[in-house]
Amino acid sequence: MTPEEFLEMILTKFPNADGKISENKLPHPRKRVWINVAREEFKDLMKFIKELDPKAQFSIIIARDGGDYLEAKYHLELFYEQAPSISLVVGTRCPKDDPTLPTITDILPSSLPYEREVQEFLGIFFEGIPDPRRLFLPDDFPEDIYPLRKDEKGISDEMIKNAGHPYKMKKEG
C-alpha cells in the first residue's frame, strides 16, 4: 500500500481530519504521513488504523506546550514487512484548562509507559489509564509542578542548580 492510498482511505472515513504527506531530500526520498484530528474522533481513528494493520508498531508520544493548548503526537509504523513501510504521525490537541485525552492502552498496549511519562512531565491526564503512577520523577517531587511546561507550573528559578559556568554565572558579590 502506498502512502497516498492510505491517506485517501483515512480521509474518506474521517472528513474532518486534515492530512498531508511530506517528503525529504535523501538519495531515496522518504515520505511521511501527518494527520491532525480533533480530540473527540481520536480514539475512533486509532481503532480504524489498528484494523487496517493489526501488527502496527508504536514508537513514541511527543507532547508539547503550545501556549494555551497542549498538543500530543503519536508516531506509528505500519506494514513493517515491506520496504518502505508507512510512517504515520497522528496529532491531537486539548485546551489548557481541560487537559484530558482518551487513553489508547486498550488498543495498543505498548503505549502505557509513554502515557505515564507525559502525565508526569506535562500534566495531560489520560482518562482510563490502568496505572497512573510516576515513572521517572522521584516520589518527593512536588505534585503540581510539571517540568516541561512554560507557564507558572513549570520549573521556577530557585529550583535550578547551577554548577558554575564561568561565563554565565550570576555575580552574587
Binding site: 535523501l26 538519495p27 522518504r30 501488527k55 508498531q57 513493517y80 520496504a83 505498548s110
Partner: peptide
C-alpha cells in the same frame, strides 16, 4: 509485536524489521 520490541531482541523472535531497511535510509539500499 504487541510490546513493540526493537533491535536484536525483536529479530531474535522472528519479527523482521530493521530501521535501515524499512526507511530506505541514506545509501543503505545501494
Amino acid at each position: 509485536i504487541e510490546y513493540s520490541a526493537q533491535g536484536p531482541t525483536a529479530r531474535g523472535s522472528g519479527v523482521e524489521k530493521d530501521a535501515r531497511y524499512n526507511e530506505q535510509l541514506g545509501v543503505y539500499p545501494d
